[in-house]
Design a protein around this nucleic acid. Structure first.
Lengths: 330, 330
DNA sequence: ATGAAAGCGCTAACAG
DNA sequence: CTGTTAGCGCTTTCAT
């Protein structure tokens, strides 16, 4: 079988030099119309496709955005079951498409995260989007590669996309309160997750300023954890009439626990989730939720990287808006 | 700021030749212990990280698996809302991790798919996993790059991972029938989607062999389509007592439509979905469904690529198993 | 066991 | 406008 044609072959067939071939292929100026035509013909005849690796090496830029996800213990099952990550990818791909940039996906195990991160940083080109990296690791990465954007709250110098998690949580509780609920419990996310921390803060502030009681349980940002937390909450505080839940997946579990316990949503217990992920519309009833604009954030992150090195401390703020569905409608 | 150190720098600092440095870095034989130590020291001192691009160019192999997704019309919103794709990614990443292979993600617009596919094929290294490519496009890709694996039914010569969609659909209907249901409707997927076609076939065979009536509606593999199809089905055939739905996302919508119409799941209408995606456990009640082992299929596809060129027509079969949850429990 | 040298395929000065 | 010539950073013969 014939080897893949190189630009050398194209040049030979077209009867020009490699340089000329390169010029017309990259449609750079400095090539006459007749030669252009000959080169194009040769390209077509040979089915020539530039070798991106060689291009990248010589030009120093490979035009790839790296996306890093850290996997905790149990493997990366969460990538397949947690909508967050795929939303981020979905947001980035359209902006990368058409500008000849590719997306590289890295799953790094928490235990070896440090080394893995060093290697990724060393080979970064357009830069990296840190989807859920802890502040410490993010800072480490940033030290090795300035072209970095975090999508979660992180070390202060790292450029980031910032969603108003605190405000969102506050709004959620306030909304529940306005609808007349007074025993508003919360199911929070992992204690160390930066987003979860902010949402917890928002809940606490709202509870305090509205004169309510803090009734909290801890979840893990997964459905099962939401189910368990809700059941436990209901047992310990049977008078709960609303729940603010820090993630839709947990909210889906909570809805199941609540109805399994013989109560109705929203009549007995009103629910507001967080994220507005696919889970929010799959539950029954569909969830009122605080929309985290993941796609927009990811797209903006990609665009920022495309523009060049972001300023240290650069930040772009994103609103977290209330999306009303049936889990609060009654 | 200091430029990134090259192997040249390492060699100089260690006082050896580039060749020797290369040998120890790749821990190839042919370097004495004392020199190895000096090189390692130099690497550590400089924080040297090999440039993967240069490596790839010289060795001809970049160790990357390309994943291609075609986007239809409206953009790739579906990637963020449809669990299939992220499950495939989740399946591949663990097998790629640790073998120093990376994952490249490509979203190609349907209109320009042909050219895009040619370019990807030209730059493929370990090969490509075709997640949802039509047979025609898959064949085209395969013509340009033998290292290809499709995850959906496709042109006969293209190596593939084959799930028993027909058998799964058949099993689902049979299960409903065994539970005493007799008016078993179906909501199918897109007319041209190869998986949807097989599931439709399975439904038809079951209906015929069980002596039931074919009551079908068409969906789009999304929640909204499932909602609409279910509502329409219920209006036109109020005596329906069960539904086989070709995808969990549609099933989630159908559950909502059914309960919104005042009927209960599973008491009045029993439901079996397909996929066993995150949507199946977010609905209320959780869905009985036919499990498509997407993660396993994707992992096997990645492994196949890692092994070298798959045989033409290579196929690996995967079962589609019944997972019983509450939507059929009564 | 070690080093010198030849490229991988391409782009980008630099000459002509 | 066109061609010649250096490399990009690395691996890999091939001598030594």
């Amino acid at each position: 079988m014939r080897l893949k044609p190189t630009i050398e072959d194209v040049a030979r067939v077209a009867g020009v030099s490699r340089a000329t071939a390169s010029r017309v292929i990259n449609n750079a100026p400095g090539a006459s119309e007749p030669l252009r035509a000959r080169v194009h013909a040769a390209v077509a005849e040979l089915g020539y496709q530039p070798n991106e690796t060689a291009r990248a090496l010589v030009s120093g830029r490979q035009r790839a955005v790296d996306v890093i996800a850290v996997t905790y213990g149990s493997g990366i099952g969460w990538l397949g079951t947690h909508p967050y990550f795929s939303r981020a990818l979905a947001g980035m791909m359209p902006v990368l498409e058409g500008v000849n940039a590719q997306l590289r996906l890295h799953a790094v195990a928490q235990e070896t995260a440090a080394e893995a991160i060093d290697e990724i940083a060393a080979n970064a080109t357009l830069g990296a989007v840190l989807a859920d990296i802890t502040p410490v690791l993010a800072a480490r990465f940033y030290r090795r590669c300035r072209r970095t954007v975090s999508m979660v709250p992180t070390a202060s110098s790292v450029p980031r996309m910032e969603a108003d998690n605190i405000g969102g949580a506050y709004t959620a509780v306030k909304q529940l309160h306005e609808r007349g609920r007074r025993r508003i419990a919360a199911i929070h996310g992992p204690a160390l997750n930066p987003c979860a921390i902010d949402r917890r803060t928002g809940y606490r502030r709202a509870v305090r300023s509205l004169g309510l009681t803090d009734v909290s349980a801890d979840g893990d940002f997964h459905r099962d954890g939401g189910y368990r937390a809700a059941r436990q909450l209901l047992e310990q505080h049977p008078d709960i009439d609303a729940m603010f839940i820090a993630c839709d997946l947990m909210a889906a579990g909570a809805v199941q626990a609540i109805t399994a316990g013989g109560r109705r949503v929203p009549d007995d217990v009103s629910i507001i989730g967080f994220d507005d992920s696919i889970a929010a519309v799959c539950t029954n009833p569909p969830l009122t939720t605080m929309r985290l604009p993941v796609e927009e954030m990811a797209a903006a992150a990609a665009r920022l990287l495309l523009e060049g090195d972001p300023e240290p401390g650069h930040r772009q703020r994103f609103p977290v808006d209330l999306v009303i569905r049936d889990s609060t409608r009654n």
